[in-house]
Design a binder for these strands. Sequence first.
DNA 1: ACTAGCCCCTGGGAGC
DNA 2: TGCTCCCAGGGGCTAG
Length: 309
Amino acid sequence: MPELPEVQTTVDGLRHTVIGRRIIDAWSSYDSPYFKGSETIKDPVYFKRFKKEVLGKKIIAAERRAKNILIGLSGGLTILVHMKMTGHLLYGAYSFDKKNAKDPWQGVAPAGLRDPFNRHIRFLLQLDNGKSLALSDMRKFGKVTALLTSDMHRSAHLRDIGPEPLDGSFTFERFIERLNRKPHGKVKQVIMDQSIIAGIGNIYADESLWRAGIHPAERVKNITSAKLRSLFLAMKKVLSGGIALGGSSTSDYRNIHGEMGTSQEAHRAYQRTGEKCTKPRCGGTIRRMTIGTRGTHYCDKHQLLSNKR
DNA sequence: ACTAGCCCCTGGGAGC
DNA sequence: TGCTCCCAGGGGCTAG
């Protein structure tokens, strides 16, 4: 699932591909009664307006805020894309058949479409160079909308998001200040809370806690300062490592060229249930439990609850 | 103001 | 092989 490293990988890809291109057409097959009246393209009425607004605009910027992709356009508009669980953007020779929304590509499928996870295209921007920017989103959780660039950070989509963990300004003191907003929370849920810290999801939460040797259900207030410092460093390391490896493709995530990342090969806890812990001389086993509603992976030997130590 | 829990959604895997 | 059932989970929303 796309988290900070995957979204950053996508944004880096956008910067190398679509900057300077003009949008000449837009297409969407999202149509959900549940989202009727929402300011997202899942409402076909909104999509009509969206299309009118973005047509003819030039793509001038691409940035990331938490797990949101922000595609800056000429004319003071920004397209916000949240890939949620199973979405990813693709750049290439994708096109669509206006008469048959179920088959959004024509002729010979682009190389990327040979991968079944790239075939669930729900949204597409046709660009002025014959290529397009498409959103493959198997489970249709994705969110696409247009915002005024000038106040997008004040919009409901972005305003309550916490600091970026890879920013230089995100110091240990800042980290502690953020965590202390939920002292009674389980640490995994707290670091995944986007209003506390931006961009961390299930995978990188499990990986960070594994590295720091902290049980995911530990309450924030019960964690020693030394352990919190380990967690702080682990988060930065795991997130920047994820970017360096092109993101994690445990299931459906692909980069903008439709290719898998390799970060999943570096996972030490996530989806390694039953495997021997790979921490040197640990000897533990990776276990699975549920925290909140999320599957959680941890080592039963070096990630112990404080009352069991 | 908080939090627990439901809901959006589809494909893949388990079980029979 | 083919059917049914269940599960994955980010984040928006609501009921308590």
